[in-house]
Amino acid sequence: MPVRRGHVAPQNTFLDTIIRKFEGQSRKFIIANARVENCAVIYCNDGFCELCGYSRAEVMQRPCTCDFLHGPRTQRRAAAQIAQALLGAEERKVEIAFYRKDGSCFLCLVDVVPVKNEDGAVIMFILNFEVVMEKDMVGSPAHDTNHRGPPTSWLAPGRAKTFRLKLPALLALTARESSVRSGGAGGAGAPGAVVVDVDLTPAAPSSESLALDEVTAMDNHVAGLGPAEERRALVGPGSPPRSAPGQLPSPRAHSLNPDASGSSCSLARTRSRESCASVRRASSADDIEAMRAGVLPPPPRHASTGAMHPLRSGLLNSTSDSDLVRYRTISKIPQITLNFVDLKGDPFLASPTSDREIIAPKIKERTHNVTEKVTQVLSLGADVLPEYKLQAPRIHRWTILHYSPFKAVWDWLILLLVIYTAVFTPYSAAFLLKETEEGPPATECGYACQPLAVVDLIVDIMFIVDILINFRTTYVNANEEVVSHPGRIAVHYFKGWFLIDMVAAIPFDLLI
């Protein structure tokens, strides 16, 4: 008679799926529990143990900040960024110097990925580790590398530091407007667009060049630039800015003055950032001319202004700041037409079709709590990747769950009947059967004279019903998954307890 339990259901295979997918890609990662103190490590794979030199037993239950890997060259700011990422709910990448158990130093890129439950609360953290440099290539500990984003994938490793954006290309926007319009339909740009040429040739750093990471940081200074100062900065030398009595002219307006920039070969870094931020506020060169004239017309309804409409929906549905990093990277690809469009465009503009998908598509409701890094690593669709929660398995109709209350009560009843059979069957065979043979035949009273025979008949009927119930009862397979398919249940029961239950259900007393 089957006594099969499996009270692990309803099970959740999400954690096993993450481990299996990460292991298949030869990654070095740990999984931490966000619900406990210090976000203790609950799993670390073999790749991480080989990377740091510690065994799994030495890593388990330690804080996922990996303070046991810190050393003299470990930056405090990087460690603080990892700790801050564990307090938030967004994906974050941090470069930090770690030390192995043998004392060797290596520069590592740590990717902190939160995993949320159905309520939107962070319950786990996945920390992925990628070695960037070994100890002989690690720089000085005073050099802070965590304020910069990861290198873009479309640049060669040897040319990542030679990417320079020439400031004269930004200063000569109005001069290039006529050349853009003359391109017409034969050019790649839309009317009114501004073409910015980027020099990728390796050259020595000069005062006129600005690194790509500095251009990325310009967006942080746009908020500090007032509207009046932006307007004066875009007017140009024809209309000098008016300053109040006793007030000095704005240095932001002076930063885009061609006369002032041409007199000296070098520009201050602050002026460069502010000038680029001011130019980015204009949607095209037409807006710059309109600002000089004193009238700013409404933005025209053409394809170039609607190019950012799908980007707005993608940004609203993005799951991490990696989408913004990807957008900034692609927006700086050289030799393309940049349409400086305000994100607050007309909502009635139709979304044009684009061959290049900048932001990841909208994630469906079932995966809105899973970050983009987890979705990318697992390579699963929205119909396959579940949320991290207890999910009731989908069972067929008329199927009994093996952990249901009805099955528990039924098993206790069958257990009592088995005990009765084990006690009274030998007793009936030894004593009652002998008395029946010696006594007179009682054929007239039937079952009324033999109450134990009636009980034995009921017990046999219950055993037959138990066999039928076992054909529709779920079970737990070797992978700790609840199986509810009727065919698989029948095959599993035939290979197991079916023969024993059938022999126990045969009414031998009635056959004798």
Rank of each mutant, 00 (worst) to 15 (best):
V3E: 14
G6D: 07
P10M: 15
I18A: 05
F22R: 05
G24L: 08
Q25F: 06
K28C: 14
A32P: 01
A32Y: 01
A34N: 12
Y43L: 01
C52H: 01
R56Y: 03
E58T: 01
V59N: 01
C66F: 07
F68C: 01
L69M: 13
H70C: 14
G71Q: 01
R76V: 13
A78D: 12
A79P: 01
A80Q: 10
I82H: 01
I82M: 08
Q84F: 08
A85Q: 01
A85V: 01
A85R: 01
G88I: 14
G88N: 13
A89Y: 14
E90S: 09
E91S: 07
V94I: 13
E95F: 05
G103N: 08
L107S: 15
C108R: 01
V110L: 11
D111T: 14
D111E: 01
V112D: 01
V113R: 10
P114V: 01
F129Y: 07
S140G: 08
P141H: 06
A142W: 04
H143T: 11
R148L: 08
L155G: 10
P157K: 15
P157L: 14
K161T: 14
T162G: 14
T162R: 11
A172Y: 01
T174Y: 06
E177P: 14
V180D: 11
S182I: 06
G184F: 11
A193N: 15
V195A: 06
V195H: 04
V196F: 01
D197A: 01
P202Y: 01
A204Q: 06
P205M: 06
S206A: 09
S207T: 12
L210M: 15
A211C: 07
D219L: 04
D219E: 06
N220T: 06
N220P: 13
H221Y: 08
P227T: 06
P227I: 09
E230A: 09
E230M: 07
G238R: 13
P241R: 11
R242A: 10
A244W: 12
A244D: 12
A244I: 04
G246H: 15
P251M: 08
S261F: 12
G262P: 08
G262T: 09
C265D: 15
C265S: 14
S266T: 15
R269F: 12
S275A: 07
S278Q: 15
S278L: 11
V279E: 13
R280Y: 07
A282F: 08
A282W: 13
G294N: 15
L296Q: 10
L296V: 15
L296R: 15
P298D: 11
P299H: 07
S304Q: 15
G306W: 03
A307E: 13
M308C: 11
L311A: 12
L311D: 14
S313F: 09
L315I: 15
L316V: 07
N317R: 02
S320Y: 11
S320H: 06
D321F: 04
V325I: 14
R326T: 08
T329I: 06
S331K: 14
T337R: 12
T337Q: 12
V341T: 11
K344Q: 14
G345M: 14
T353P: 15
P361K: 09
K362Q: 07
I363G: 05
E365Y: 11
E365L: 07
E372I: 04
L378T: 02
S379G: 04
S379A: 05
A382G: 11
P386W: 05
